[in-house]
Design a protein around this nucleic acid. Sequence first.
DNA 1: AGAAATACCCGTACGC
DNA 2: TGCGTACGGGTATTTC
Length: 266
Amino acid sequence: MPELPEVETIARALRPELTGRKIVSVRLLWARTLATPSVAVFEKTIVGQSFVKIGRRAKYLQLELSSSNLFIHLRMSGDLAVKGNGYLPDKHDRLHLGLSDGGLLVFNDTRKFGRIWLVADPQEVIGGLGPEPLDPSFSAQMLYELLHRRRRQMKPLLLDQRFMAGLGNIYTDEALHFSGVHPLRLSDTISVSEAEKLLLAIRTVLQSGIEHNGASIDWVYRGGNFQNYFRVYGRAGQPCPVCGTPIQRIAVGQRGTHFCPTCQVM
DNA sequence: AGAAATACCCGTACGC
DNA sequence: TGCGTACGGGTATTTC
């Protein structure tokens, strides 16, 4: 499932494939995939532009074009790949971009949650995002200070992309367990040493996710295998890998939340 | 400020 | 077997 690591993986894979290639045709197969601008403007603007730079910000893929920015959010079931000649369209394809040398950039998204934007100013899409946990300049001290500027439960706060960008439901549960922080702890009760452990945990689970090419859950399988390394997510009733206590599952803000009642104390 | 609910999706898994 | 329903992910939006 496409949380941050998979986006990083896909960005890396697409970089050598797309850089320098030109878009010669566009076919939007599910109109609501396009968040902005209008379909007419999108189709007219994107054709003729070339891919300049491929990157990501949080869970957004950023495809920098000659004169605008194409952002793609994969959400749950989205996937982006370059196909060769003779590609047979899939029923869940949402966007086809024909490339100058005959290739096809395909955005496939079973659940229709994914969105794309074509904008001049990147800030329109990613302007409200919080800091990148993997950015080396982001420190535990900064995390501590941000946590103490709020008084919110840790689980929903870490999921809030304006607070910190890139953590989804799975990685949040894993990071909280890794650092021994209870999901219902209030953010301004976290100590400096806990903030240090938490940042390390966040980076560890994200990097592990990247190494394993993302997680595949819920029958949506696209090659990743981070799901085999979950310590708490989806393991309700099974023993905690650290202490053996059965993992508990509760709902926090409508989201399934998994934790070890022994390792993660209030 | 921020909590909470709702909407968006659809292929599964489940109960009857 | 077929039908109905709950579920899960991330984010925008609305309401409180």
